[in-house]
Nucleic acid binder design. Structure first.
Length: 821
RNA sequence: GCCGAAGUGGUGAAAUUGGUAAACACAGCGGACUCAAAAUCCGCCGAUGGCAACAUCUUGAGGGUUCGAGUCCCUCCUUCGGCACCA
């Protein structure tokens, strides 16, 4: 009997070998079936898979196998986000060249993928560190440069001292570097940017298309990040007559302006000679932006002595320099209305600036001298010239109309999102294809000379500096325009550029050009799966990049990801598994102890995919037990397999009920997977079915009709198991003589007529409280239910002598009798 | 402050359209098998009271709508996530 033990090691090896041998996961264009592109976010090849990866890819594999069984032509590729800083750190610390370190890691992780039995089409593998891939980063970069979407500018940028490179705004979290968590500082540097702001409106509009398929919270995070606001730019004037434009979202308060504030970095301030003011500006500029904007930071300012004229009422108000005004937002200058803005109120109190009420509370009039904070609610305009008496909501529109008609203002839309800083002072990334010539200035490398190859034989000498920066053989080149001496850009691209289009490359991985026609057969990705942490990073960048590719005519869809599933984290002892906390569980160890099928099932059973999952070794054991229970059941009944047809009406009650359970299980498992994305309950339903088989009398199952029923059970249950535990499912399929790869079998169907229970339990309530229950035939009528309720001894004793107000009968569920007194 | 998600047994969690709260599993307890243990199979398992039948209570708190609320509405509390001197 030894060969009939559940030996997961042998089984998993056997089927992984057969799948590979027959190359069954390879995908081709096929017009006879509907396409389905399923993608999980590709990993950074850090060396080993962690549980988060296992969870992500297990969910993806389930959906890929399910859609395949449902008859779709499924694209399910995998690749490597293989540029990035950890490779350089390994090089510096252990003197391993980044290329070798990365390649070794890819090979190791690929073997781990194989051990998990994922259904990837490896013939489409893509790795971003390969010249044939990153050539197209450079090619698109050149196109973007030509369109003004890639540009170089001097700007204050985020600098991570630990990583020795600049960072995009999206990569600074809470003032800290997203990768190494060290404090980010500000530096004024000449850097390359992608003009994502040009697509701010499109990125926002695109949400309309995504709102059914994406989690609400991801859309919200992106909306907040894009930060669209509607307002009015008002041309205040200096006494000299010069324009002094400011942006406000509260034009209704313009009659209440009592001072103006300007950012310390504003070039306007160069004209001020006053040494006190210049000292203040110098001091403010020294504070990093992060310090200045810290939450509890005291607002500081100084009067410049300059007066600004309000175009609405002619008021002359003082101009202050203030540390809280941002140069990058609006015009870098603001109007201040202390009566109706808390920050302005505090500042005015501190510097003794007058406060002027222009919006009153209609419910309880405000005494401006008694105010302890600004009045920021809606109200009625007062002291507002011709606009006095309007509701402030109305005043916003009327004042804006007036400003536009009289040339003193213009309705303006502002966005908080800033351009994407993409240059990195690092070695292990895609070279930026720019050349600097003293005569011709910035030049792009011509298309015929692409790719600019990143040299891989480099020596770090233990230094944290990028070796490119001092590599003369790389730097020295000829100017593409004049042929004279020129120098290459030594910065590389943010690795988020690499991952902004890989999903499209999977669709035509071997094309000579960036893509071939296949890209538009497969795109968009129908279902994308990955972590929530990319909500405003990768998921925003990729949408932007895809829109650029759309405008270049390379891709026919504007939005690359139709549906998005953000899977939860893997938690142990109340915290995310991480090396620093020491609560990491190595997937390899668990696979060795229980098998890949068990690990996969646990990942799907312990919680719904979008919620966090609590790691529990006991829970893993439970899944292992369930697989064993199925195994023993199949071994026990495998000799009963028959092709005899079932005569349903002739079945015994027990067999009828088992068969009903089977069809109900298929129905709910199908729905849980395809509609509800709730794999934990799908597994629970299968457990119930297996429990029902164990509950069924063996002699009944051994009967002729019993054999037919158990055959049906096995021939439907095992294909369902395939998407959760593919190795053992294939083995059991072979055991019952299923034939062919289970991977290629159709998903089991069910007969809806058989899903109805013959006998159901109904409840009898009095005033909504359950007082009695009864087993009845499912064909019972409403009238019969009502009669039964009244006749029920418990019910009748409760309602005896009471007035019945009404009776509510819910067919197949309950009877509720409402009584008085 | 603004926006979003969540709060259910000892634990992970179910409850699909407002209709039997706690499915399924983990842990625990008991039984069968065994010389014994493991494995396996079977049973019990929200709280309180009761020998029991049973009764009462129970989905963060308090109100409301309804014959009936975990689910809908209002107020509040807590936790997590995002944005935040953005004018």
């Amino acid at each position: 009997m030894a060969e009939l033990e559940y030996n997961f090691k042998e089984i998993e090896k056997k089927w992984q070998g057969r799948w590979a041998e027959k190359d069954i996961f390879k995908t081709k264009h096929d017009d006879t079936r509907k396409k389905y592109y399923l993608l999980e976010m590709f990993p950074y090849p850090s060396g080993r898979l962690h549980m988060g990866h296992v969870r992500n890819y297990t969910i993806g594999d389930l959906m890929a196998r399910f859609m395949t069984m449902k008859g779709f032509n499924v694209l399910h590729p995998m690749g490597w986000d293989s540029f990035g800083l950890p490779a350089e750190n390994a090089a510096i610390q252990h003197n391993i060249p980044p290329y070798k370190w990365t390649t070794d890691n890819i090979n190791h992780m690929k073997s781990q993928f194989a051990k998990l039995g994922f259904s990837y089409d490896w013939s489409r593998e893509v790795a971003t560190y390969k010249p044939e891939y990153y050539k197209w980063n450079q090619w698109v970069f050149v196109k973007m440069f030509e369109k003004g979407l890639a540009y170089r500018k001097n700007a204050p940028v985020n600098w991570c001292p630990q990583c020795a490179t600049v960072l995009a705004n999206e990569q600074v979290e809470d003032g800290k570097c997203w990768r190494c968590k060290s404090e980010v500082t500000q530096k004024e540097l000449n850097q390359w940017f992608f003009k994502i702001t040009a697509y701010a409106e499109d990125l926002l509009q695109g949400h309309e298309e995504l709102k059914d398929g994406w989690p609400e919270r991801v859309l919200t995070m992106q909306r907040n990040w894009i930060g669209k606001s509607h307002g009015l730019t008002i041309n205040f004037k200096l006494e000299s007559g010069e324009d002094f434009p400011i942006y406000t979202t509260r034009p209704d308060t313009v009659y209440g302006v009592t001072y103006m504030v300007i950012a310390p970095e504003h070039p306007f301030l160069e004209r001020i000679k006053d040494t006190n003011v210049q000292d203040f500006i110098a001091r403010m500029k020294k504070q990093s932006l992060i310090d200045r904007l810290a939450e509890d930071k005291e607002k500081e300012g100084i009067d410049t002595g300059i007066k600004v004229i309000n175009p609405f009422n002619g008021d002359k108000v003082p101009l202050y320099v203030g540390n809280f005004v941002l140069m990058e937002y609006g015009t870098g200058m603001i109007m201040s209305v202390p009566a109706h803005d808390s920050r302005d109120f505090a500042f005015a109190k501190k510097y003794g600036i007058p406060i002027k009420l222009v919006i009153d509370n209609p419910a309880s009039p405000i005494d401006v001298n008694a105010m302890t904070d600004a009045y920021v609610e809606d109200g009625i305009n007062v002291n507002s010239g011709p606009f006095t008496g309007l509701s402030n909501r109305e005043a916003i529109e009327k004042i804006s109309d007036y400003a536009e008609k009289n040339g003193i203002g213009k309705r303006t839309v502002n966005f908080r999102i800033k351009d994407w800083l993409i240059s990195r002072q690092r070695y292990w990334g895609c070279p930026i294809p720019a050349v600097y010539c003293d005569t011709c200035g910035i030049q792009m490398v011509p298309e015929k000379d692409l790719p600019v190859i990143l040299p891989i034989d480099v020596d770090f000498h233990g230094s944290s500096q990028s070796p490119l920066a001092s590599m003369e053989s790389f730097i020295n080149t000829a100017c593409p325009a004049c042929g004279g001496k020129a120098r290459r850009e030594t910065d590389t691209m943010d690795t988020f550029v690499d991952s902004s289009w890989y999903f499209a490359k999977f669709a035509s991985p071997h094309s000579k050009d960036m893509f071939d026609d296949e890209v538009n057969y497969w795109m968009p990705v129908d279902q994308y799966i990955g972590g929530i942490e990319h909500a405003v990073l990768h998921l925003l960048y990729a949408r932007f990049f895809n829109m650029v590719l759309y405008d270049l005519g390379l891709i026919k869809v504007k939005e690359p990801f139709t549906r998005l599933l953000t899977q939860g984290m893997v938690i142990k002892d109340g915290a995310k598994m991480s090396k620093s906390l020491g609560n990491v569980v190595d997937p390899d160890e668990i696979i060795d102890a229980f098998g890949a099928d068990t690990v996969r099932m646990f990942m799907l059973f312990a919680s719904p995919p979008d919620k966090d999952l609590d790691w529990s070794e006991k829970g893993v054991e439970g899944c292992y037990r369930f697989i064993g229970r199925v195994w023993r059941m199949v071994v026990k009944y495998r000799n009963f397999i028959t092709t005899e047809t079932i005569e349903h009406e002739k079945l015994t009650t027990a067999l009828k009920s088992l068969r009903g359970e089977l069809h109900r299980t298929v129905k709910s498992v199908t729905k849980d997977i395809s509609e509800r994305l709730q794999y934990n309950t799908a597994i629970a339903r299968m457990m119930e079915l297996v429990n029902a088989v164990y509950q069924c009398d063996e002699k009944e199952i051994a009967s002729a009709q019993g054999r037919a029923v158990i055959s049906e059970v096995l021939f439907k249950l095992i294909p369902m198991l395939n998407v959760f535990t593919p190795h053992v499912a294939e083995e059991l399929w072979e055991m019952i003589g299923g034939g062919g790869f289970l991977y290629n079998q159709p998903w089991p169907d069910f007969d809806d007529a058989l899903t109805a229970k013959e006998e159901i339990e109904i409840v009898f309530q009095v005033n909504g409280k359950i007082r009695s229950k009864a087993q009845v035939s499912s064909s019972i009528t409403k009238d019969e239910m009502e009669e039964m309720a009244i006749a029920d001894p418990k019910i009748s004793s409760i309602i005896a002598g009471k007035e019945i107000v009404k009776k509510i009968v819910i067919p197949g569920k309950l009877v509720n009798i409402v009584i008085k007194g």
